Amino acid sequence: MIIKTGLGQDSHQFEKKSGKDLVLAGIKFDYPFGLKGNSDADVIFHSITNSISSITGKNILGDVADQLVKTGIKESAKYLQIALDDLGDWKINHIAVALECAKPKIANHVEAMKESIANTCQINRSDVGITATSGEGLTSFGRGEGIQAITIITVSKS
C-alpha cells in the first residue's frame, strides 16, 4: 500500500458590510458577514481542495477556479469536486481541519460540517476531524478579522 499526506491552507477576511452568506464546509452560518472572495470563500472547502492539490500536483484554486467564476460558478463545493476527481484511484483515509477564528463560534456547527465534508468527499463522518481555536487574539484571525483553515489529508492506494 502507498500512503500520501497532503497539506492545504486557506484564509479570508470578513466583508466590511453585511449581505454575503458565511459558508463553511458547505454550511451556511447565521452570521451577518461573509468572507471576501470572488467565490463563496468557503475556507474549509478551499483548504481541503488545496490539500488534495498538494497530492495530485494539479492546482485548482487559481486558474481553474478563476475560469469557473467567469462562468458564474462560485460554489467552493464545485472546486472541491474537481480536486476529488483528480485523485483518481487514491482513497481518502482521513481529513483533519484546524480552524482559527475569534468569531463566529464553531463548536455548535462541528457535527454538521463534518457531515457535509464526509458527504462531499464520500467518506465516513468518523474519518473527518475538525478542531477550532480562537487564536487568543494573537493573529488577525484571533482578532476576529477573518477565518483561517489548515487541512491535512491522508490518502492511500494499493
Rank of each mutant, 00 (worst) to 15 (best):
E115W: 04
N38L: 13
Y31D: 07
L24D: 01
I147S: 01
L22C: 05
I152M: 15
I92P: 01
P32W: 14
K74E: 06
K70D: 12
D21R: 15
F29G: 03
D63F: 13
I2T: 15
A112G: 12
Q13L: 12
A112Y: 10
N50C: 12
K16E: 14
L68S: 08
I27T: 10
I44A: 04
F14E: 03
Q148I: 06
I150W: 00
D63P: 10
N119G: 06
R143M: 15
I48K: 00
V64C: 06
N124I: 02
Y79T: 02
Q9K: 13
V69L: 04
L24S: 03
T154M: 04
N50T: 10
L84F: 07
D42T: 02
D85H: 09
S18H: 10
A112Q: 15
K157G: 11
K58Y: 13
C121K: 05
S53F: 01
D85W: 09
L7W: 09
A112H: 12
L22W: 04
R125M: 08
L68C: 05
D89G: 14
A41F: 00
G37T: 10
H12N: 12
E15C: 13
I153D: 08
L61R: 05
G26K: 06
Q81G: 08
Y31W: 15
V43N: 00
A132K: 04
D85Y: 08
S39D: 05
A41H: 01
N108G: 13
I52A: 00
Q13W: 06
K28Y: 13
D40I: 02
A132W: 15
R143Q: 15
